[in-house]
Amino acid sequence: MIFTFDFIILIFMVVAAIIALNVKDLLSASMIFGIYGFLICLLWAEMGAVDVAFTEAAVGAGVSAVLFIATVFNTNRKSSD
């Protein structure tokens, strides 16, 4: 646990969350959500939760972003807000 890393990653996470929710293009939103997943995976590894970090890297950053993109591909890419 190193507080400087902790601080930086947490700030980036909040920024990534806000951007993911405010982008009008849903494909970009899905990709930024994948970035959010990688950041939180870094945070788990930094806090000593290696198993959780591993799962998050595979699931949160990889599979769930792909699932979002698959849905956006089959529906509408534009969002009103």
Binding site: D51, F54, T55, A58, V59, G62, V63
Partner: peptide, 8 residues
């Protein structure tokens, strides 16, 4: 983890 990697 291994299962998710295999699926991926």
């Amino acid at each position: 983890q291994g299962g998710v990697l295999l699926g991926a």
